[in-house]
Amino acid sequence: MSEALLIDDVTVAFGSLRAVDGLTLRIEYGAVRAIIGPNGAGKTTLLDVITGKTRATSGRVVLDRTTDLTRLGEAAISLAGVGRKFQKPSVFEALTLRQNLALALRSPARGALAEMLHRPGRDELDRIERVLEIIGMAGSGEKLAGILSHGQKQWLEIGMLLMREPRVLLLDEPVAGMSDEETSRTVELVLALRAPDRAVVVIEHDMDFVERIADLVTVLDQGRLLVEGGMSAVKSDPRVVDVYLGR
């Protein structure tokens, strides 16, 4: 397995607080990586740094061994192939599902005028339909995203990321607030996203969900790497038990 993302000695400090503290992580293609840890462990801040929302105080984030993401803006990072799903479902509620998905397709060369004149081609329409199918909403393409349920919005957002065929997919708590049935469907969705040329990173509190999807689990605590390994090994690690149950 080749390296997709290298988080190289990254520190993020907010005043005296170090949300991420000298963290080094390697994320490989073809696997689903779960990042867990108690509240305040630095999980969301880590995603913020990777996607350019927050600047790292020090350290680098390298994509494909070549691109230093800490030098790029949010839009450029997205164009480089890193897609992120937010903790809170973020879809465009006043647009239809198809329009939502279509907006996710972005060619960097198009200017404002071209966007005004743009008409979707065969390829684009096909891809929209395919993604609608993957997220289980075929036939709802003309519905407004605003009327979807919470779980459906989460899936639509994942679908928007899929339109881009991202090489690194970051999912921030994808099953928070979902029913059991919705969670099961999300498990299937995430497992279907696993591909040899794609790295999937999931942040999640739901241990049951993590166990069902993760190939490798990373445990963070106070911005530092605590344990890394398979779910069963991590679960039985006394340090992890310590962190979760308190000292």
């Binding site: 929302k53 973020s90 465009f92 996710a104 972005r106």
Partner: peptide
Amino acid sequence: IAIRDDEARLRFLG
């Protein structure tokens, strides 16, 4: 409209 609804999302879509 996407900017009005969720500008950050659109930015993270590139």
